[in-house]
Amino acid sequence: MFLERDLSHRRPGGSIEVIAGSMFSGKTEELIRRMRRAQFARQKVEIFKAKIDIRYSETEVVSHDENSIPSTPVDNSAAVLLLSGGCEVVGIDEAQFFDKGLVDVCVRLADQGVRVIIAGLDMDFKGKPFGPMPELMAVADYVTKVHAICMRCGSVAQFSHRLSDNEKQVMLGEKNDYEPLCRRCYNTK
């Protein structure tokens, strides 16, 4: 039998944790791991994803390794703030797809005592800072930079190379559309 507990002691101060890196570096996998640990600790959690991200599921955050966790798809950052009332831990996947208001939302949640865990691409396929990620990394209490393995030489990869000629900054894709590359291979592609 589950007993109702007083959890008011759990909010000493919030924090912002950013997990950043290239495609196929394990960002979502790490976000799911941290969120599951919070659930195991019986913390009230909610995970959000951009509504446009329907690659594997419309209502779950899914890693490339096919691990998943239920999520709430939202149109914008304001919805994260609106729907996270009472949460102790808020997760946000693919933060690069959100508007710049996400930075203020995350700071506000952290200031209210919420642990905010964010995963996203730090650079787009051109190697440029992507969406609100640079600002999120600047205001974060903790930043974890994860890396993939270069598909051409086996070195540590930090770039997401797009395999098509599509020039749109936002293009949802998977292994057929992107490959992780190290700096040397990215610059000689």
Results as ranks from 00 to 15, higher is better:
139 V>M: 09
48 F>V: 04
103 V>Q: 13
13 G>C: 12
74 V>G: 05
107 V>K: 14
110 A>N: 11
86 G>Q: 15
181 L>S: 08
148 A>Q: 11
108 R>F: 07
47 I>W: 02
141 D>W: 08
77 S>A: 15
90 V>G: 06
33 R>P: 02
148 A>R: 08
163 L>Q: 14
98 F>L: 03
153 C>F: 11
20 A>T: 01
187 N>Y: 07
50 A>S: 14
1 M>A: 06
151 M>V: 13
62 V>S: 03
163 L>F: 07
178 Y>W: 10
41 A>G: 11
67 N>E: 13
33 R>V: 04
46 E>Y: 01
185 C>W: 10
73 P>A: 02
138 A>C: 07
82 L>A: 15
106 C>D: 01
8 S>N: 05
180 P>F: 06
144 T>R: 09
79 A>R: 13
20 A>Y: 02
136 L>M: 04
66 E>W: 04
39 Q>S: 13
80 V>G: 10
8 S>L: 05
23 M>E: 01
71 S>M: 06
94 E>L: 06
162 R>E: 03
28 T>R: 09
102 L>T: 10
97 F>E: 09
76 N>S: 14
81 L>H: 10
112 Q>N: 12
1 M>D: 01
59 T>A: 05
49 K>R: 06
110 A>R: 15
144 T>F: 07
106 C>K: 00
30 E>Q: 13
21 G>E: 14
57 S>A: 14
180 P>V: 06
126 K>E: 08
30 E>H: 10
119 A>P: 12
169 Q>D: 12
97 F>I: 12
17 E>Y: 04
81 L>G: 15
104 D>L: 09
159 F>G: 00
161 H>P: 00
171 M>D: 01
87 C>R: 15
122 D>I: 02
26 G>T: 03
126 K>W: 02
12 P>M: 09
84 S>L: 12
154 G>C: 10
174 E>M: 05
114 V>E: 03
7 L>C: 09
50 A>Q: 07
165 D>R: 11
77 S>Q: 05
102 L>C: 10
184 R>W: 08
38 A>N: 04
169 Q>W: 06
72 T>E: 12
